[in-house]
């Protein structure tokens, strides 16, 4: 099963990024083969709708689950349409979260915040 985690750096030793949409990288990890790769989040520097674009990037990786501390409503909508399940991370460590996920210890993420509404009409 392929899963994704927002990370602060391109390493398995990395910490989980506190913000999904603004995370610099996503770890794409295969729980069976233990293969992994990092995908740059090109949405992170966008002025608005970062969560939506980030979700698009993750969804395009054909993952089945996302492990994240929090997630905006808009991104959650994208994941729902893409049949990607969201789990709440319980520590900062990428490794520990993967382990916990494999053991079935991570809870589903239930609350989504209202998001940034990143638009700025009438200016930049």
């Amino acid at each position: 099963m392929k899963i994704a985690i927002p990370t602060d750096s391109q390493s398995m030793e990395s910490t989980v990024c506190a913000s999904f949409g603004r995370a610099p990288y996503f770890l794409i990890y295969d729980t069976e083969t233990k293969d992994y790769a990092f995908v740059a989040n090109t949405a992170a520097s966008g002025t608005g709708g970062a969560g939506i674009m980030a979700a698009q990037i993750v969804a395009d990786q054909k993952v089945s689950a996302l492990l994240t501390p929090r997630c905006g409503q808009n991104a959650a909508d994208v994941f729902q349409s893409a049949d990607i399940k969201l789990y709440r991370t319980n520590t900062d460590s990428v490794k520990d979260n993967i382990e916990a996920f494999v053991k079935g210890e991570l809870p589903l993420l239930a609350d989504f915040h209202a998001g940034f509404h990143g638009r700025n009409r009438g200016g930049r």
Partner: peptide, 9 residues
């Protein structure tokens, strides 16, 4: 400039 959530972020 328009209000900006990103600048706050």
């Amino acid at each position: 400039s328009g209000t900006s959530g990103l600048l706050v972020t």
